[in-house]
Design a binder for these strands. Structure first.
Length: 418
DNA sequence: TGACGTCAAGATCCG
DNA sequence: CGGATCTTGACGTCA
């Protein structure tokens, strides 16, 4: 069982992706964007390895215009050594990666130009995973596409296109139910035609159930048989409805109690679970820690180190409560810990709390900062206290100091990033 | 023709 | 100047 997240991180330094507009996409620009993005990918892989995250989706945007004639760069060759090095790290960490072209890659489109571009896009994704020297269990996840008023016909067109794909693509391709047209029942039928493994997406299924009713775990079992020996562990996508947002919108964070209920219901299934959630790695670590075999409190202490100043700012009472909770080093109150963090993050910002948290963080620098920095910080703090600014300028300054004075522990604090 | 979804670039305004 | 808040771009389908 691995639990992972998609594409981007929250609060991991130097992991951002850059792109440009089509009209600015010249060779030099693309080369430097790709160099930057591969460095970010390597930093993400390092972070994942250090944090026990063994499932990760690589963003399609890592190569800007990766399947467009705008990008003629031989990036596999130009960055061959980087790909090899990053691929080795993935393998060494026992990590499984994937890619997922978005809703605009439509293989079954009746418009031949659109389906042709979809093929090119899939080939780009396969080329990327090949460049990392990853095996075929590192999948490309794809939706079936549009229904065009005749789902049967659209499904047949998908199967026809699938059969014509290069084996480098086909061996990696897995198909997923969507929230509009193709239900899990439809996708299982298409799998019967094509042999492609099926990814069950619980939220898409809740929005677009189709077929005969069944529990999530029932459908997951139904998908299990589509995964062959070379395909690796069966994968599912898991997400939760964002409260108050439109149907199908992903939540900001995974609510741990709902996740654990789901997790109990699929107990015994050997699955890889890809979380689709705004706070990305944060929810991944949460769910990993709450289902870990090694119930060591240092897992929680480590995550607490990243949350603590954020929680101090959001809800000082919860800060104190969590400190109490973690005092018993023989216990492993993972769910209780994350439940408190979820609760604290719902609190409204309070100026006094912001000042208090900023002063705490300032404690790292009060003996090392020079006179100019001291003056600057306290001027910033006074403005915050007077309600003349948000806490952003203070935080920005403290982050700058953390970088200058190499406070590694502080640099990883979510206080700066949420 | 605009909504849909996503995230970064780019533009603009404010103090 | 930094920060906050738009708008645009890039994609295809569907109402």
């Amino acid at each position: 069982m691995s639990i992972g997240y998609a594409c981007l991180s929250v609060g991991v330094p130097e992991t951002g992706f850059k792109t440009c507009t089509q009209k600015n996409a010249d060779r030099d620009r693309l080369r430097s964007l790709i160099a930057h993005n591969l460095t970010s990918l390597e930093n993400l892989i390092d972070y994942n390895a250090e944090n026990n995250i063994r499932l990760f989706r690589i963003s399609s945007d890592i190569i800007p215009f990766g399947s467009s004639p705008v990008n003629q760069l031989a990036w596999q060759d130009l960055f061959g050594e980087d790909f090899t090095r990053i691929g080795e790290k993935i393998r060494t960490a026992g990590m499984r990666v994937s890619m997922h072209p978005g809703q605009y890659t439509v293989l079954n489109s009746p418009d031949e130009d659109i389906s042709r571009r979809a093929v090119l896009d899939l080939e780009f994704h396969a080329r990327f995973l090949d460049a990392l020297h990853t095996g075929p269990e590192n999948k490309i996840v794809l939706h079936i596409g549009g229904a065009y008023g005749n789902k049967q016909e659209a499904a047949r067109r998908f199967a026809g296109m699938y059969a014509g794909l290069d084996s480098a693509v086909r061996q990696r391709l897995v198909i997923e139910n969507d929230e509009k047209s193709f239900s899990i029942r439809d996708v299982l039928d298409i799998s019967g035609e094509t042999g492609a493994p099926v990814v069950f997406d619980n939220l898409h299924h809740a929005v677009n159930p189709g077929g005969t009713p069944g529990s999530d775990s029932g459908w997951i079992r139904a998908c299990a048989g589509t995964w062959g020996t070379g395909d690796g562990r069966q994968k599912i996508h898991y997400s939760q409805q964002a409260p108050g947002k439109k149907t199908g919108a992903h939540s900001d964070s995974i609510r741990i109690d709902d996740f654990l209920t789901f997790y109990q219901s699929i107990h015994g299934e050997e699955l890889d679970i890809m979380l689709e959630v705004k706070d990305k790695n944060l929810s991944a670590v949460k769910c990993i820690n709450c289902t870990a075999d090694a119930r060591q409190i240092n897992l929680l202490e480590r995550d607490w180190g990243r949350y603590k100043y954020l929680i101090l700012e959001q809800a000082p009472a919860v800060y104190r409560e969590i400190r109490e909770l973690l005092k018993n080093r023989a216990a492993y109150p993972a769910a209780a810990f994350y439940r408190l963090i979820e609760y604290a993050l719902t609190a409204e910002a309070d100026r006094g709390n912001s000042v208090n948290a900023a002063e705490h963080v300032w404690g790292y620098f009060k003996n090392t900062a020079d006179e100019r920095e001291k003056k600057q910080f306290f001027r910033c703090l006074e403005k915050l206290e007077a309600g003349e600014t948000s806490s952003a300028p203070c935080k920005h300054m403290l982050l700058h100091l953390a970088q200058k004075y190499r406070q590694k522990y502080l640099l990883a604090s979510l206080y700066f990033y949420i």
